[in-house]
Amino acid sequence: MGCCYSSENETTEQDPDERKPLIPHPNPVSKPPNGTDWIPTSVPSARTDEQALLTSILTKTAQNIIDVSAADSVMMEQHEYMDKARQYSTKLAVLSNTLPQKKSLALPSLTSQPHQVLASDPVPYSDVQQVSKIAAYAYSAISQIKVDAKEELVVQFAIP
């Protein structure tokens, strides 16, 4: 089992604490704020729609933010971090021992007639030139990618 392929439903023999996030979700979807989780069937449909819309906005907002003030209150002690680190290292060491020795990838077969392939005409100069040009453009484009900070990463919610 490689790390890249492990999925969340592989829960066999898992320590429940192992998957506990360091920052707990501040507002789990299963527990919406008061008054929005239960809508009486007798209200007019317009009101129901409005409530549903509000609930969806709340849920979306809750999913998109990380409540850093809540994270402070569940600060882990230094030794807890160390314990977790040790726990993960042990787990990794055990797992890496069970992995089969990664054999270098077998060579793919590109052709059954190597001599013919190697004797055929070289790539035309114009093609090489075009590829060089495209690569230069791509390099230039990649080197110009940058993060443009537009707003504060942490914002205060103005709650009256």
Partner: peptide
């Protein structure tokens, strides 16, 4: 691909793989 070409000014390396070679 069938062949890899490493093109330099004066010469070209052409590389292919067949039968694990």
């Amino acid at each position: 691909f069938k062949r890899m070409s490493v093109t330099l000014e004066d010469f070209v390396y052409m590389v292919t793989v067949s039968g694990q070679k």
